[in-house]
């Protein structure tokens, strides 16, 4: 079927970063880098995005590939062109970040996971995506190269708003680095209101450092119901340093629902999603605590 979004563009496949920067630095927002391309293809087919040029990153080699532990074992480096399936099948990811395989279970389907890339997913800026909030809860950071050099950004600082990132023209995410924290536990709750594999009404990524039932430190990241994945810092402050109990969870849920104003859309009204947030932030914390310190 002919689609206007799929007309009138060219594809280039640079084999060096310099060549890529040259091809991307045109000032034309319809020139886009492409990793796996699954999300971009959907935007093109629905005519939300009409490219003039796609710059495929697949021939860019080493800085975008590989998956391994740092020599000191303190973090894991994930090349931006790793597919979701590569993460899902990686024994290293399974042992350090079991949350990733669990998240993959309800993330799109195998065919998409075989193609979609870690870096493309991070750069896309769609607030409904499942992995960006998870990387945020894990304190992930990205290495970014661009015509004016290289920089490192927390995943949390990549997002400016709805489909808006802090990436400048020509800048490319080459890798994701995630710190290994053996004494932290994490979970991602994808709350869908239609089918299990649907886009989430809310996404909730939580990681906690526990000592018995006491929360030493934590990250709570909410996605999908806001214009970008967002740390719930007020709820975190309520919980930090305290023992998990019913009264504290109520207090944390109050803080969480008060600090954000959720969006109404076809997956639920603001009121409904606020209710979901209250329920699921409580359940997720309870589950993490009972998993780590069974009563």
């Amino acid at each position: 079927m002919e689609v206007a979004g799929l007309r009138g563009f060219d594809i280039v496949e640079p084999s060096s970063l310099e060549e890529a920067f040259g091809l991307l630095g045109t000032g034309d927002p319809a020139v886009r880098p492409m990793g796996g391309g699954t999300a971009l293809m959907l935007m093109m087919k629905s005519e939300l995005f009409k490219p003039t040029r796609l710059v495929s990153l697949r021939k860019l080699g080493e800085p975008f590939h590989g998956l391994g532990e740092s020599a000191d074992g303190k973090w894991v480096r994930i090349g931006a062109l790793n597919t979701f399936s590569m993460l899902d099948h990686s024994p290293l990811m399974k042992s350090h970040f079991p949350i990733i395989s669990r998240t993959m279970n309800t993330l799109a389907n195998l065919r998409v996971r075989n193609v979609a890339s870690v870096g493309g997913n991070l750069a896309h800026g769609d607030p409904h995506l499942d992995l960006p909030p998870v990387w945020m809860a894990l304190d992930g950071e990205v290495r970014i190269v661009g015509p004016s050099g290289e920089r490192v950004s927390a995943v949390a600082d990549l997002y400016k708003g709805y489909y808006e990132t802090t990436l400048e023209e020509g800048e490319l995410i080459t890798e994701l680095r995630v710190p290994v924290k053996p004494d932290w536990k994490s979970s991602y709750t994808k709350v869908t209101t239609r089918a299990a594999h649907d886009w989430p009404a809310i996404g909730l990524a939580i990681s906690v450092q526990l000592s018995g039932r006491q929360i030493q430190d934590l990250r709570i990241v909410l996605s999908a119901a806001l214009d970008k994945p967002t740390r719930l810092t007020a709820a975190e402050t309520v919980l930090r340093g305290r023992d998990i109990g019913e009264a504290l969870l109520r207090e944390a849920a109050d803080a969480a629902t008060e600090e954000v104003e959720l969006e109404t859309d076809n997956r639920g009204s603001q009121e409904y999603k606020t209710h979901l947030l209250r329920i699921y932030v409580t359940r997720a914390l309870q589950d993490l605590v009972s998993e780590a310190a069974p009563k």
């Binding site: 699954t38 293809m41 959907l42 799109a108 389907n109 195998l110 065919r111 998409v112 075989n114 193609v115």
Partner: peptide, 20 residues
């Protein structure tokens, strides 16, 4: 990429050929 009717294998991995 939701319905699976266009499934093929590329280098032995199933992919949606409508999204490639």
């Amino acid at each position: 990429g939701l319905c699976g009717c266009c499934t093929i294998y590329v280098d032995s991995n199933p992919v949606s050929s409508c999204l490639m």
